[in-house]
Write a protein that binds this DNA or RNA. Structure first.
Lengths: 123, 123, 123, 123
DNA sequence: GTGGTCTAGACCACT
DNA sequence: GTGGTCTAGACCACG
């Protein structure tokens, strides 16, 4: 499990953690049932407060990515393929819609946008 | 000139104003030289503090979207076609990059993303 | 707005606060739009940490009871009559069902249970 | 004797065990004198630690539901009809009081509550 | 050892 | 002044 925080990023640390874990669960990199390292460990390795980590874990549990069992640890929650696909595209379509709106507002055509996309994909 | 604020939105009010004005300037909806309504008018109509409006205007001036002429008000700044195009694509590529990153994180291929884009373009 | 915490109660403080606010919103004692006292004030008056209060507020916002506007305060969220009634009965029916299950498990009849209920209502 | 644990449930495992045994004793499903399976058997079948099972048994013994006879195991304790009835109603009135409190907090009348109860009784 | 909760005090962004 | 976030360190319940 890979985690990192960028203190210079203006998005809150707990949000950064949330996004990373959620993405790994949705992509399948973290399989259901996988135990997560203890909060204290994560906290130390990343150099952030335990409470910050817990905040992220809390949100992840609320959103159904994790289950925590007091005294035994946190685990990746089982997630139906359906839910996973839905969540996966949710974020993406939101971003796509915003991009499309911006393109349209500036009079850019779909073909132009697609070519920009393909060009940038390589990076 | 159309402006609106959504107090329930988590993005700061001054930022909402900034984005709206900037977008209208870049899209040409607000032509260079156009006078903006007085701060106190905007403040009243939107039901936000004058200080907040002032903050947005300041930022817009700092970024070259507006110019203030003491005693006569604020006006849309002249902007070179080059700068305008640059800014337009700046925003767009930022969004594109984010979208691409999300797609890659979820194991989605470029062809899939393109087809999603085209499908959503119609809306 | 009335709030109190019982440190002897084993239910977490933030939960106690949550329940009290939620109940007052659902019962109509707190009308939509009503501003809540600042977190720091509540914190001081109840003698609990700011973070604890924020935890409760956070949950209340997530569940749609409050909206918070950074820099200006927290307010009772608008809530549709439908949602309100639904939530109101949700908790109640859960409790009722548990009670009924316990009564049935012990061979108590519905009429007995009703008379117990009425007797205890007076307290 | 039927036992099960739900690790996703937020109530501690030892408590889940306690409740199940206590309920079966009070309802008569487990008659006084009945021997309980060895702790290690229960532990294995439920997939929980022996310490946890032991904790539940201890609590049950403390509360007079079980008796341990060194070398021969645990047995359902004899319980007077009086004690049994008292405990039965204890639990029930606690639930009733909570239900009534919730109803009152939401401005629901006794007659409404009774009709809700009767309606739900049928399930 | 694990997570769950709490405290006291701090800095920043927004209005 | 408001909420948003973070730190460091603590105690308890659970397994």
């Amino acid at each position: 499990m890979k985690l990192s925080v960028n203190p210079n990023d203006k998005t809150p640390i707990y949000r950064q953690l949330y996004e990373q874990i959620a993405a790994q669960v949705l992509s399948g990199a973290l399989a259901p049932g996988t135990p997560l390292p203890p909060i204290r460990t994560v906290s130390k390795e990343l150099g952030v407060s335990m409470i910050t980590v817990r905040g992220a874990w809390d949100m992840l549990e609320r959103d159904g990515y994790l289950v925590t069992r007091a005294g035994s640890g946190c685990f990746v929650a089982p997630i139906s393929a359906q839910t996973r696909d839905q969540r996966r595209t949710e974020k993406l379509t939101a971003l796509l819609d915003e991009t499309i709106a911006a393109a349209k507002a500036h009079g850019i055509r779909d073909t132009e946008l697609v070519s920009m996309l393909l060009e940038r994909w390589e990076n």
